[in-house]
């Protein structure tokens, strides 16, 4: 009886190992994922929109305590702002013209592939609705409409791709602080947090400084906004300093994205 259960356990173990080896074969795992994404993506996109509305609703409830105070402030502000509105009409027209030109400008700088966000995956990555059939390849940079760096293509399926966000723990690339003329290594910490490491101790960086991509390593095109410095971590013993980074992209990830196919 004991021998039988040992054989049974061994067989289960071997079957499990065989199963994991089989499903992790590149073609097979991508096929399984693409299959599930193909019929899950319409539901996920619908739920993603509902989720945004729901989180806005709950954010409103949790800030109820401040509503009266805010209301009084707004009354004063309305009077001030109504005077400004007339002047802003001209600016609105100008803004609309600029917005229309934004996509054109982006397309002038890079060759772009437009994509929609299908879901927000487990961990810091997103799923987009463009894949091998649309010319997407692994490691292509992904940016927002505002030209903020979002991440890079991590895995490509037939009709979908996974984007590894810059805040993912597996993400690491060279970045620079233009105002201090200093470079460092930007590493993801997970949960929409990132840190700029290996910044020389003598570099004069401060909170609010903007961090951009560099052409070093050919990972991303130069000059894309990554984020801003949230806090500094200086240690006299170490020859390098560290800075917490607030990513430039909106965490809600509501907008569409662009994949840079050539830079």
């Amino acid at each position: 009886m004991k021998r039988f259960s040992k054989i049974k356990l061994g067989a289960i173990g071997i079957l499990l190992i065989a199963f994991f080896v089989l499903v992790n074969l590149p073609g097979f795992s991508k096929g399984i994922r693409n299959f599930f994404y193909s019929f899950s993506s319409p539901i996920q996109r619908m739920l993603l929109g509902a989720g945004d509305n729901m989180s806005n609703f709950f954010a409103g409830i949790f800030s109820y305590g401040n509503l009266k105070k805010e209301n009084d402030n707004f009354k004063v502000q309305i009077l001030e702002k109504s005077a400004e509105i007339s002047g802003l009409q001209e600016l609105k027209k100008e803004n609309e013209a600029l917005k229309a030109g934004l996509v054109q400008n982006l397309q002038k700088d890079f060759k772009l592939i437009f994509a929609n966000i299908v879901s927000k995956g487990i961990g810091d990555f997103i799923l987009i609705n463009k894949g091998l059939n649309d010319g997407v390849k692994k490691d292509m940079p992904v940016i927002t409409e505002q030209k903020f760096l979002l991440g890079k293509i991590y895995e490509v399926y037939k009709n979908y791709s996974k984007v590894l966000l810059i805040t993912n723990k597996d993400s690491s690339f060279d970045a620079e602080i233009l105002s201090a003329e200093a470079t460092g290594v930007l590493k993801g910490k997970g949960n929409f947090n990132a840190v700029l490491d290996s910044v020389p101790q003598e570099a004069e960086i401060k909170t609010g400084d903007l961090v951009f991509t560099t052409s070093l390593g050919d990972v991303f095109p130069e000059g894309l906004l990554v984020g801003e410095i949230k806090s500094l971590n200086k240690n006299d013993v170490s020859s390098f300093q560290q800075a917490e980074i607030k990513p430039a992209f909106d965490k809600a990830l509501k907008s569409s994205v662009f994949i840079i196919s050539n830079f």
Binding site: S40, Q44, R45, G51, S55, K120, I122
Partner: peptide
């Protein structure tokens, strides 16, 4: 599906 879409921002 709920975890990756509806409650992704929670």
């Amino acid at each position: 599906l709920f975890q990756t879409s509806l409650f992704a921002d929670f």
